[in-house]
Structure formats: structure tokens, C-alpha cells
Amino acid sequence: MVAVLPNQHPEEERLLAYATGSLGEVKSLLVATHLALCPLCRASVEAYEAECGGWFDGLGGGAEDDRWSAMLAACDARLDTAVLPPPAPRSTLPMTGPLVPEPLRGRLGRPLFDFGWNEIAPAVWLSDWTVKDAQTTGCLLRMGPGAPVPPHHHSANEMLLVLTGAFHDEYGHYRVGDVADIPADTDHYAVAEHGGDCVCLFLLDGEIRFL
């Protein structure tokens, strides 16, 4: 089978921020889950990491003084007993329904449709599962076939990653793995395609106002 690559990608600055480590936790979760489905963006992140490696190599000075000798001795004394930190938690649940990639699968901890859903418009729901960091809140957005998310205004960035199904908005069509990266201060609507529910990881930096 020839794999279908995502067509819609995060903004370049998100990939740069993810590679440098300056992207927030919740946006990193969305970007990393897109990366699992997008070898193109994985290549970009690796290239940005190589740029960071160049910046990193340009840092620092000599380490010949007593302070560094003491630090080296302290580190050397720990080499024989050092152990790696535990690996990231990965989901061990059997997956039923759409297969969500890591790292999101482990954070969700259950199959995609097994959440409580709050209806915000006819056939449009938000999950009771949420993630949050200082800047961004995330949850799942579920749209029934053909169901429109009412027009709303963004005072801040919104990001969507399609996990199953498809939707379109005024900017284009989005299928599994695609990212909609919607800038602040825009009005926006979205409609799920016919053929099944569309579920997205849905991130928001600030308040959302329905028009």
C-alpha cells in the first residue's frame, strides 16, 4: 500500500519551536502526533535540530579549571551506578476504532470514542478529556457527518489535528494527519465531511467566541 501523506502542515515556526524546545507542552503534543504521520515534517524537524546543534556547538568556553575538574570527578563517580530515566508512558491498551499515533494515544489512555462528550451545537461535541499548560488548552472536537461548527471568532491561535474522518473550512480540506493552524483574530467555521464522524485534537490559546 502506498501511504498517503498529510497535505496540511503546522506553520514552519511551530516546527522550529518544537525542534528548539521552546514550544509549549500541549502544542508539542499536537506537533509530535502530526510528526508520527508526516515524514516530511520529521525531516524538517531533524534539519532544524541540526541548526540547533550548530548554535549549541558555538556555546561555552574552556573547562580546564578546578570547578570543571570537580564536576567531572563527581560525574565519573556516578557512571557505574547511573540508570536512565523511565521511558515515556506508552499505551498498552488494545486499540479499537481509529488508531491514534503516539504520543497522543498514551495521553488519551483509551479508544477515541470512549469519552464523555458535551454537545456545543447540534452534532458537535467537545470531549471531557482535556490537557492544559500555561498557554494552551486542548480537548477532542467531534463533528457528526455534515455537521457545521458554528462560525466563531478567535482572539488567539487555534490548532486542529484530524484523527479520524475529514472536515473542510474556508482554507481547505483536512484529512487524517492534517493540521489546521488558524491565526488569532480571524472568524472561522468548519464542516465535517459526509461519511462518518470527524474527531480532531483541538487546541486553543485563548477564549473562543461564537458569532
Partner: peptide, 21 residues
């Protein structure tokens, strides 16, 4: 963050490998 940075799992069956391109 006292939490693991979100990263891909190279062995994830849901990951699209370069070899499939």
C-alpha cells in the same frame, strides 16, 4: 515540566515510516 516531552515512538504501529513512501 516534570513530564516527558511529547515525542514520536519510532516503533509505534500507527507511525508512517519513510519506507512506506
Amino acid at each position: 515540566r516534570k513530564e516527558t516531552r511529547p515525542e514520536i515512538d519510532p516503533n509505534d504501529p500507527a507511525l508512517l515510516p519513510v519506507a512506506d513512501l
